[in-house]
Design a protein around this nucleic acid. Structure first.
Lengths: 240, 240
DNA sequence: ACAAAAGTGTTGACCATACACCCATGC
DNA sequence: GCATGGGTGTATGGTCAACACTTTTGT
């Protein structure tokens, strides 16, 4: 960043800055991808659903604001959050200019609970998103694209899963976001294990009937050398 | 974006917004990747090199500001530009808060000329970047990562190349950015042609001795169905 | 004729896919 | 015993990297 220079102050725009979050949760049980939306109570776009957002306060960083939005609506243990894009809105020049910095977040549905006593906040299925306030539909679309890319190329799944998880948990996370037909479980399994950053803890998870599943742990150190390599989690060799 | 709501004005931060550009140019003749830097003439960081930046004026969008920086320093025909990241700087609370929105740009070195009469602006080899002002070294690093990713996964090369180009032009662009050993020319060639979005114009480029090269054109329509497919331009199937 | 630049072809090793099959547990 | 969920194995076709080879031009 270039710090403001004193002598050129006259033309400079003053900005208000808002943060809007695209918050995804993965419901692996019902195989749903959900978005957290809030119903607006004021004009403009009164009664429309919108992405949860806020204006940035003094003494609060952008990222803090993003986390504040989250914590005002839900409580969650494991999540992934990153900045998405900054949208510029050349609004009426008689008002302050307005910038919207969007963030996207991912978590498991089972792991997130909407704070009590908050009405007009809901998890809505990605396939059933209505027309949202402002340009939030396109922000959401942009966030969904980023989510898919991140899941394919980065180990964000392990920020979202608990410390110990089964390979089936992982697989379900992937299929819910990317669709059922990106690869079958058997190949997914051998691919991930071959990469060598999943540690067999020896512990087993018992889920009712059936053979108990091995619990794995993500090994950050073993993953480090692969950090800059592309295309780790899914295979996309076929060009068509 | 959520529009400012009137009743909660007291706590809100006011921002100045700056734009900083990471401007890459590819010198395919000398196989160099260059960055446009400017030498600061004021404190802080006087005499340090820095990324070209500016504060955003009234009536000017973020992207306009990014283009303004460019056009004040260089003239260029074909370029690719996109937003990179928004950096937050919780500076002294008695001053306005400051946000830096960074952009990255790519062009060919042959195609870009530094505007006359501008001193202390230079193309500097990526391998010889000094310590820059502020946190510009990390912004640059972030931009370089994005550049490599974009080149691998998106057709940005065709925004940078002229309308008609040879496959060797394209290959040199890739090797200069990604390094010599990502694939050899023969394989690069057959891969790209198999994808079917490069049109043989029939025209030939004569560069002194040697067989004349076929000039190709990028076919946007033929590319469209591949837009959302990952991993088009380089192969990364091998996991190690 | 020869060098230089462009373009083609071939091969072995490896990987992805699809699918069939085996294992461990609760009831 | 058997349904249920977890895990293993294998054959086939495709892809890629490496490298040798051919074609077309200028001098």
């Amino acid at each position: 960043m270039t710090k403001p220079v004193v002598k050129v102050k006259q033309n400079l725009a003053q900005f208000k800055v808002g943060v809007d979050n695209v918050i995804f949760s993965v419901d692996t049980i019902n195989n749903q991808l959900l978005i957290l939306l809030v119903k607006r109570e004021e004009e403009p776009f009164k009664e429309y659903w919108s992405l949860p957002g806020t204006l940035v306060k003094y003494q609060e960083s952008l990222e803090s604001a993003a986390y504040r939005i989250l914590s005002e609506k839900i409580t969650v243990n494991n999540l992934y959050l990153e900045q998405l894009y900054t949208f510029d809105h050349s609004s009426n020049p008689q008002f302050d200019r307005y910038l919207s910095v969007s963030y996207f977040a991912l978590m498991r549905y089972e792991d997130a609970t909407i704070t009590k006593n908050i009405k007009s906040v809901a998890w809505i299925n990605l396939d059933a998103i209505p027309t949202l306030a402002f340009d939030h539909n396109s922000i959401l679309e942009y966030g969904y694209q980023r989510l898919r890319n991140k899941l394919e190329y980065s180990p964000i799944a392990f920020d979202v899963l608990p410390e110990l998880f089964t390979l089936y948990d992982l697989y379900q996370l992937y299929t819910t976001v990317l669709g059922e037909n990106f690869t079958d479980y058997s190949n997914f399994r051998s691919r991930l294990l071959k990469l060598g950053f999943l540690i067999d803890t020896g512990e087993k998870a018992h889920k009712g009937a059936g053979r108990p599943a091995t619990l794995y742990r993500f090994d950050t150190k073993a993953f480090a050398p692969l950090k800059d390599k592309p295309l780790l989690f899914i295979s996309h060799c076929s060009l068509i």
